[in-house]
């Protein structure tokens, strides 16, 4: 169902030629197969709600399909899709319904499950546990970031987008993107290594 090379795709390599881009968007099945993991992963990390991520992933592709004629060639397909997904996530987060259900949702992402998904490398059990603990800590730290910082952090370190691409997705100036990213990293760094703040 999902091509294996999706996860290792650098975002820039997903940019297609002008002629091929239109063709690929018309072939929605291929677009879904190629970009669904990425869109879903981003929405899941952003919203931390399985059902919401699932619904908005579907909505993202439906919107893309509906608006495919308006797709300009100023960015890659993946950037365009992530931009749609981000807008949908923002709208979803703004609604009162989300705020209410966020507290009682049984389908919220469990940080322990994410930590348990750490790939088993050839290392000791202790190293594996440490890695799981680190993942747990980062997930918890990301939850404490502001919405904008979280978005930028996830786009950079989960989706591996470069700064100009993040600026294109968020519509923010490069300097603002960098500023938010560095602040987010500082929060993560402080949680990761509390001694780093002792020198302040």
């Amino acid at each position: 169902m999902v091509p294996e090379n999706i996860q290792t795709f650098p975002s820039t390599s997903l940019t297609l030629g002008a002629g091929a881009r239109t063709t690929s968007l018309d072939d929605l099945e291929s677009v879904v197969a190629m970009y669904q993991p990425r869109v879903f992963r981003f929405l899941l990390a952003q919203l931390r709600d399985r059902d919401a991520a699932e619904t908005l992933t579907q909505e993202t592709f439906l919107r893309a399909w509906t608006a495919r004629a308006s797709f300009r060639e100023d960015c890659s397909v993946s950037t365009w899709l992530i931009r749609i997904a981000l807008n949908l996530a923002r709208d979803h987060t703004r609604t009162g319904r989300f705020r209410f259900w966020k507290h009682i949702a049984g389908n919220a992402v469990d940080v322990a499950d994410v930590a348990a998904s750490v790939p088993n490398r050839e290392g000791s059990a202790e190293a594996q546990l440490i890695a799981q603990e680190q993942v747990k800590r980062i997930w918890e730290s990301v939850a404490d970031l502001s919405a904008r910082q979280r978005t930028i952090f996830l786009l950079r370190f989960l989706e591996e987008m470069d700064i100009p691409e993040i600026a294109a997705v968020t519509g923010l100036p490069l300097g603002t993107v960098k500023s938010h990213l560095y602040r987010a990293l500082n929060v993560i760094r402080t949680r990761h290594n509390p001694q780093s703040q002792e020198g302040l």
Partner: peptide, 23 residues
């Protein structure tokens, strides 16, 4: 590790998710 774990988790969840229905 954060990226790898998040990706693995999301991929695992995605397998349970129904396919996107084309218009």
């Amino acid at each position: 590790v954060f990226r790898e774990a998040s990706t693995a988790y999301a991929d695992n969840e995605l397998r349970r998710m129904p396919q996107v229905t084309l218009p």
